[in-house]
Design a protein around this nucleic acid. Sequence first.
DNA 1: CGCCTTAACGCTAATAATTATCAATTTAAT
DNA 2: ATTAAATTGATAATTATTAGCGTTAAGGCG
Lengths: 129, 129
Amino acid sequence: MTRQKKVILDILRSTKSHPTADWIYTEARKVIPDISLGTVYRNLNVLREAGEILELNYGSSYSHYDGNPENHYHHVCLECDRIADVPMPVQAELEQKARACGCGEIYYHRLEFYGLCPACQQKKDKQTR
Amino acid sequence: MTRQKKVILDILRSTKSHPTADWIYTEARKVIPDISLGTVYRNLNVLREAGEILELNYGSSYSHYDGNPENHYHHVCLECDRIADVPMPVQAELEQKARACGCGEIYYHRLEFYGLCPACQQKKDKQTR
DNA sequence: CGCCTTAACGCTAATAATTATCAATTTAAT
DNA sequence: ATTAAATTGATAATTATTAGCGTTAAGGCG
Ligand SMILES: [Mn+2]
Ligand SMILES: [Mn+2]
Ligand SMILES: [Zn+2]
Ligand SMILES: [Zn+2]
């Protein structure tokens, strides 16, 4: 466990946002000013392979990272790209139903809801009114 | 509706696979030998915005495209990256449950199952035996 | 504590999917 | 047939991510 790796993991664990590599890089430089972006990517991959974080790819051209490696669901705003946790329990029966279709083995599933975050929803309401 | 756009849409609608832009490009060249890759990307974006196809980003570094724009679920093989349809009905109650969490407006959701496709599952069985 | 092996670092250049540009061509409405 | 607008193919640009490499620092052991 190097200093760089620990700082990156701490940053990810201490935010509820789901930041990009570049945002993590900016934050990390506040602690280790000469850390390199390559090191950020390298450690994000290492941490993902170790099961300590999640990498999220939801349509945008870059990955977002999540300090909570437990399976949980997300809401993605189509307006501002904000990703938020959806605090509902994991629906295990979905995997049961999918297995019944005989499409091979299933290890886990991902569920994302797309729409408008509360802030963008309000903004749109004002425009329509 | 140009010739190029029609060929691209036909290719997508006539396959059950979920091909990449590059595979579509290869197929399209069998019909229009001097079609360009830029035209393929341009029309895929146009078709997606028109709601005629789906773009799928499941972790891999490139997009897959789906000629069926109706919401449906997928199985992604962690071994060979094959994407297959999961023929189970869309679970509308998931959106009800998510709305109850108050995370903003929800227009649609996506659900993917990750594991091994039947072929890779068999391959792994043979190794273990 | 000091040595030593090895993994990780910072830097820079490379990769590769996708998008932007633009003159030339095609579409389709008049 | 004319013509204006939209789309094409070719090429260059963009950009997130990875690879290569000489240098540095973890952390195990004497
Ligand atoms: Mn999350
Ligand atoms: Mn499909
Ligand atoms: Zn928003
Ligand atoms: Zn497979």
